[in-house]
């Protein structure tokens, strides 16, 4: 897998995400500083960043829900195709 080194730290990120607002503030400050050093753009307002940084869609949303969304996206695409077919 591509990001082999990550898994050991997954739990830590998750536990930060679960921690209270004050801890998330501190965690976000560290992330903001480190990202700056690495020249990676990241949300600069800590009060916004703290509600984004622990919220990983790959974990929060199960693949089954993505399957429902992809099905609907597909149907909408097909409907539009029919629209254009008909003129």
């Amino acid at each position: 897998m591509r990001n082999k080194g990550v898994s050991i730290y997954d739990d830590q990120i998750e536990s930060f995400a679960k921690s209270d607002a004050n801890e998330m503030d501190n965690f976000s400050k560290v992330i903001k500083e480190e990202a700056k050093k690495e020249n990676i753009p990241v949300e600069s307002d800590i009060k916004t960043l703290k509600d984004q940084v622990g919220n990983d869609l790959r974990k929060n949303i199960p693949p089954q829900l993505f399957a429902v969304v992809s099905g609907i996206v597909d149907v909408i695409g097909q409907l539009e195709e029919e629209e254009s077919d008909e003129g």
Binding site: K4, G5, Y9, I13, I31, A35, E38, V53, D56
Partner: peptide
């Protein structure tokens, strides 16, 4: 939409 958590993951990732 998943940028910030992935940045955090990168910054915390270690070999």
């Amino acid at each position: 939409l998943n940028h910030e958590p992935e940045v955090a993951e990168k910054l915390l990732s270690h070999d």
